[in-house]
């Protein structure tokens, strides 16, 4: 079976002052469909950078990231946007909900970009909100939700289009223990039900406890890749 994501000898450097800072240093990895894996490591180890490159939000300096058979480095802006729109879901540490939209509209947003017709869109949004248990809050704005509820909306938004890959950057960092566990259980459920590939960037022990594959990064290099 061919890998969903293939990272080959990937290096990412950033200009820093007059020098270049190496965030990722010659990383090679593969992710299969249905994985529930995490990039684990301290701050500055390169987790978010790798997640951004997989998500076609950033380009590697050297090497390649082949996502769904497409080299992200060669994608144009529009093609990268299309790849994200159709196949990738993002979950952020700070939720990144659109503040002027209601819960329903936030979850609906990716489907609008996909130009899905109205009735199908409504059903998909309500289904997604049902998974995360927020059907009673569809008309609320994010400002009126708790942190846990906001992250559940973000999960629904990432999952509503049934993407092949979900990239979650520190999804529990702003949540208390109970909410973190609830969110993670929900993600496990979605992973099982839809065989969606989840890749986390985290250093939260609560998340690490749920991972089926742990890739430890340090100073931009993979120091360990294990299945606990």
């Amino acid at each position: 079976m061919s890998a969903l994501i293939r990272i080959q000898d990937l290096t990412k450097q950033f200009p820093m002052g007059g020098r270049r800072f190496t965030a990722l240093d010659g990383i090679s990895l593969e992710f299969e469909r249905g994985e529930f894996s995490g990039l684990v490591g301290p701050s500055g180890s390169g987790k978010t950078t790798l997640l951004n490159i997989i998500g076609a939000l950033d380009n590697p300096t050297r090497g390649s990231a082949i996502v769904l058979d497409r080299d992200t480095k060669t994608l144009r802006h529009r093609e990268a946007a299309r790849l994200r729109n159709h196949n990738l879901g993002f979950i952020f540490q700070t939720f990144n909900l659109l503040s002027v939209y209601t819960v329903f509209e936030n979850v609906e947003f990716p489907l609008l970009l996909l130009k899905m017709e109205k009735s199908g869109r409504r059903k998909a949004v309500m289904d997604a909100l049902e998974w995360v248990g927020l059907t009673d809050k569809v008309d609320m704005r994010p400002a009126r939700l708790s942190g846990g509820e906001c992250q559940r909306v973000a999960v629904a938004r990432a999952m509503v289009k049934n993407p092949k890959i979900v990239l979650a950057d520190e999804p529990t960092a702003n949540l208390d223990a109970e909410n973190s566990h609830n969110i993670l259980k929900m993600m496990i459920g979605l992973n099982r039900e839809f065989r969606t590939t989840f890749i986390f960037a985290t250093h939260d022990e609560k998340v690490i406890g749920y991972l089926k594959r742990i890739i430890s990064l340090n100073d931009g290099q993979v120091v360990r890749d294990e299945e606990p």
């Binding site: 946007a81 994200r84 700070t94 659109l98 947003f109 938004r157």
Partner: peptide
């Protein structure tokens, strides 16, 4: 700008 980044991450082309 965070909203702009989010829209891009969700697949909205820059244009």
């Amino acid at each position: 700008r965070r909203e702009i980044g989010t829209m891009m991450a969700l697949g909205m082309p820059r244009i």
